[in-house]
Amino acid sequence: MTEKIVVANKGLIKADFAFWVGRYMDKLFDAFENKKIVGNKCPKCGDVFVPPRKICGKCNVTIPFDQNWVNLPNTGTLKNYTITYYKINDRTSRKVKKHQTIGMVQIDGSNTSIIYRLLNMEPEEVKVGMKLKILWEEKTRGAPSDIKGFVKF
């Protein structure tokens, strides 16, 4: 069998895509910049969403931009977690030396969970239901990565 010939198309053109985050997410990222969390509440079912959103899918109604904002604390409950040794954002899914513990955390006062790393704890310490608090990056820039992760509360 002859060797397989492949044509690798690497970076022939650079076509980066710019997404506008929208007004609702913008408000969340503004809060992140000040190390704060905001959600918004569906006027019909009362669910509080983090990240905030314009539409409640369940009720199929709009949450008006000028109302129903809820200031939320920096604390939450661990609902679920997974531990991985693989780099996720990597072309070849390389293994990394240090594992990452990734948690689903429900911010107190909200009805949804957000996904971030769990920091400063060993895998055997991680328990669903444990209380956590946000560890902010020292310098925030109004982006999802302003939350460095969650630590024990």
Binding site: G22, N80, Y81, T82, T84, I88, Q100, I102, P144, S145
Partner: peptide, 22 residues
């Protein structure tokens, strides 16, 4: 792309980890 993609904690495999534990 505006929320979970930049932090890169979720792909099919970590999602399956959450699902199996749940």
């Amino acid at each position: 792309p505006t929320w979970e993609r930049p932090t890169a904690y979720v792909n099919d495999i970590t999602a399956l980890g959450f699902q199996m534990r749940a």
